[in-house]
Structures are given as structure tokens and as C-alpha cells.
């Protein structure tokens, strides 16, 4: 029997959606392995999270009531403890910032291979995973050597589990481990003078703009279209626009009527923050840029030629 342990994720009192997605992924893997699906709920109001998580597909929910918020030492120790307790062959965690803060430690403790950012998997005597490489430019399949393994699964790849489940909920005792890292608080960094999530039209600028001085080309378009300026990560990292303008996983999630992506390649973290836009327009020199996969209208061209032409159409 080869069981699967999924570790749920929550933050500041809210269960995160990926937890339900991992129930679906974990159920598939457990079926392939011929085992049961265990879900771990660690820290915070575990009873409430367990109730919310209890959807069809789960065989058993284990709650570990140690601490309020995420602590990677607690998560790693709890996952290790639950693997001992259940005999699970596979540990599945979110490929989130917090998932990547403890999953590698779990794999180390268990001495099993770790594969991160998994999009898909199949199990047929051996595990085969699908993941991307070279910044989403290619997809690879890889064979994993071993009967036991640890996977982090990307959000948005599996449909969330739905409905009411009947899994038994079992509290598990864990002595709080000594941790070398202590959370002292949280800070909101979005917001500020403008909320890009409120805009109907966003003109969004990426690395392709080259340097801060060139932003005026894009600002002219935003003026002409009566749109709000937003940006992808590299523009904010370079300090060309403030953090509250950043669209994406670590910035703001937006869904305007029209999203004009200029010089943005479309990294997965960016796309996660804007794919809900009604109409997506992309202008980029690289015909293979992933942004074109989700664009409703795509122009392969130099933004410094196309954008001024477009501005002139609205003057």
C-alpha cells in the first residue's frame, strides 16, 4: 500500500485555494499508487480548516495544532511525523513561497527525491512528471528514480475538489520544535496612491522597454487611451515603477476589460496575475514569447515602432 500525504496551506486565517487543488492531485496520485489520501492541516484554527477542506476524495485529515501561522520548522517536523504515522510514500505540497520554504527540508529529512513546480504526473511502476524549463520556453517529462518522493505542485493546474467529504479528522500531537526563524509580523506592500486592480484599461510594461527613460513611450499610450500604467516584475525590480504597479503572483491580480502587455514575455508568475482580463493585447519582439499563448490580439514587433504609431491613432 502506498499512501499519499498532501499538506494544506493557509495564511492569516484563510485556507488557500491551492489546498483544494492538491486534494484533486493527491487523489489522482493515491489512485495510481493504490493507496489512501491523507491531508495534513498544520497550525492556526485547524478544526475550521479541516472542516473547510473536507471534500470528497480524502480518506483522512490529520490536524497538528502547533502555532498560529506558517513556521517551516513546524511544517517539516509535522510532515515527517505524519509520514511515519501513515507510511505515506509521497508527500505533495503547494509550489508556493511557503511550500518551497519547507518541502526541500521534508525531502531531506525523509531522504527522498524532490521534484518542484510539477504540472502533471503519471505513475506506472515509476513516477513521471511534467515540468517546465528555461523560463517556460520548453516542457519536459522526467522519470523519478525511487518508490518514495516529494512533489511541489503548481497552482492552477488541477481543478479544486468540490462538495462535502466524509474524511475522519484526527488530531496529532507534536512537540513544538526549536526553530531558528521567527515570524514577527506581516506587511502589505501593494496599495498606495493607485490601485491597478480597479482600472478598466491597463497598459502594462515589461523588461522589453529596456530602461527607465523609455517609459515615456508607454506613458504616452496610457494617456492616449485614458488607461492606467502597470508593469511586470523586472520593471519594478529595477525601480522604474513602484511595487503597487506590479501585476502578478507576488504583486496584484488584475482582470481589467483590456490589458495591453508591452514588452512582457509572459512568465507564469505574471500570467497568473492577469489571465482573467477580458481582452488581452500583446506587443513583443519574440514570436515565441508565452504571452502570445494567452493574447487575444498579438503583434510581433518592436514596441518603439508600434506604440508611437498606435498613440498617433488616438490623437
Amino acid at each position: 500500500m502506498s499512501d499519499v500525504l498532501v499538506v494544506a496551506e493557509h495564511r492569516r486565517g484563510e485556507l488557500r485555494e491551492i489546498s483544494h487543488e492538491l486534494v484533486t492531485a493527491g487523489r489522482e496520485l493515491a489512485d495510481d499508487l493504490g493507496g489512501e489520501l491523507h491531508v495534513a492541516v498544520i497550525a492556526g484554527d485547524v478544526a475550521e480548516f479541516a472542516a473547510e477542506l473536507n471534500r470528497p476524495g480524502i480518506d483522512r485529515i490529520h490536524t497538528v495544532a502547533v502555532g498560529e501561522e506558517f513556521d517551516h520548522t513546524v511544517y517539516a517536523a509535522a510532515a515527517e511525523r505524519l509520514v511515519e504515522r501513515t507510511g505515506a510514500a509521497a508527500v505533495v505540497t503547494p509550489n508556493s513561497v511557503n511550500g518551497l520554504d519547507y518541502a526541500p527540508a521534508v525531502a531531506e529529512r525523509l531522504g527522498v527525491p524532490l521534484v518542484t513546480d510539477v504540472l502533471e504526473f503519471t505513475y506506472d511502476d515509476d513516477l513521471t512528471v511534467t515540468r517546465e524549463m528555461y523560463g517556460s520556453k520548453v516542457e519536459t517529462t522526467a522519470a523519478v528514480d525511487g518508490d518514495r518522493f516529494c512533489l511541489t505542485v503548481r497552482g492552477g493546474e488541477f481543478a479544486p475538489a468540490e462538495g462535502l467529504g466524509e474524511a475522519a479528522v484526527e488530531p496529532v500531537e507534536l512537540d513544538p520544535p526549536e526553530s531558528g526563524a521567527r515570524v514577527t509580523g506581516f506587511e502589505e506592500v501593494a496599495g498606495g496612491d493607485v490601485d491597478i486592480a480597479d482600472a478598466d484599461v491597463l497598459v502594462s510594461v515589461g523588461r522589453g522597454v529596456g530602461e527607465a527613460e523609455n517609459l515615456e513611450v508607454v506613458e504616452a499610450l496610457a494617456d492616449a487611451l485614458d488607461a492606467t500604467i502597470s508593469a511586470s516584475r523586472p520593471v519594478v525590480d529595477n525601480g522604474w515603477l513602484p511595487k503597487n504597479r506590479q501585476v502578478g503572483q507576488s504583486g496584484t491580480v488584475v482582470a481589467p476589460d483590456v490589458y495591453v502587455a508591452i514588452g512582457i514575455s509572459g512568465a507564469v508568475q505574471h500570467v497568473a496575475g492577469m489571465k482573467g482580463s477580458d481582452t488581452i493585447v500583446a506587443i513583443n519582439t519574440d514570436p515565441n514569447a508565452p504571452i502570445f499563448d494567452i493574447a487575444d490580439y498579438g503583434i510581433v514587433g518592436d514596441l518603439f515602432e508600434v506604440v508611437p504609431e498606435l498613440v498617433s491613432r488616438f490623437e
Partner: peptide, 25 residues
């Protein structure tokens, strides 16, 4: 290595969007 890459592919474009052709104008 515990991981062996067995295949690599270029993801197929899933877009049914319009590719606007022609010069900048």
C-alpha cells in the same frame, strides 16, 4: 541524479487569438 529528463517539447501555442500582421503602421 534521481531525475532523468526523458522528453523535451516546445509547448504548443494554445492561443486562438489573432496575430496582427503587417508593418507598425
Amino acid at each position: 541524479g534521481a531525475l532523468t529528463v526523458t522528453a523535451m517539447t516546445e509547448p504548443e501555442s494554445e492561443s486562438d487569438g489573432e496575430r496582427i500582421e503587417g508593418d507598425a503602421g
